[in-house]
């Protein structure tokens, strides 16, 4: 899959590029584009396609939180075991093991702060491996997945220049 990187980059930029556009942009034949993407999907390198949404612009009844989790492990319990338990919840949108002051970084989504707080206190904190949670509510998003949210039409160039 020698063209994988180029195609992955293009798809990360815009997952909705048609096969024809991907071919035009990369200079590859359409068949190669299709084959490569099929392979990337089959191998699980491409895990899915998603939209980058500014939910604040849609409605008020959705809130995201970034939650720090600290855990304690024992011989029978690994990070992966904890991750399995945590990732299972529908409310958990993202889960990563990170270096630094805490172990897991969680992205949680709910309708409002109360719902998210209840989810953390009822479902996450009581898990036996969890020793501490710190919840940060997202107040404003400026940039996500490479997209600037305030990036309106600010092209101030003259329309025709030499």
């Amino acid at each position: 899959m020698e063209h994988a990187d180029e195609l992955l980059e293009l798809l990360c930029e815009n997952a909705r590029y048609s096969t024809a556009d991907l071919a035009r942009l990369s200079g590859l034949p359409e068949a190669t584009v299709e084959e490569t993407i099929a392979e990337l999907e089959a191998e699980g390198i491409i895990q899915g396609y998603t939209a980058v949404v500014d939910w604040d612009a849609v409605s008020d009844d959705r809130i995201q939180a970034h939650v720090e989790l600290n855990v304690t492990l024992d011989r029978e319990t690994s990070y992966r075991d904890v991750a399995e338990r945590v990732a299972g919840f529908r409310e958990v949108q993202g889960l990563r093991l990170v270096s630094g002051d805490y172990d897991f970084a969680l992205e949680v989504e709910g309708q409002n702060m109360r719902e998210v707080s209840r989810f953390i206190s009822d479902k996450i904190a009581p898990l036996p491996e969890i020793t501490q949670t710190v919840t940060h509510y997202i107040m404003e998003t400026y940039k996500q997945s490479g997209h600037r949210f305030d990036d309106g039409d600010d092209d101030d160039r003259l329309s025709v220049t030499p």
Binding site: D155, R157, L158, S159, V160, T161, P162
Partner: peptide, 11 residues
């Protein structure tokens, strides 16, 4: 609503 391909400087 002009789309300009007439611009001689970077976007």
């Amino acid at each position: 609503d002009v789309i300009s391909l007439g611009v001689g400087e970077p976007d």
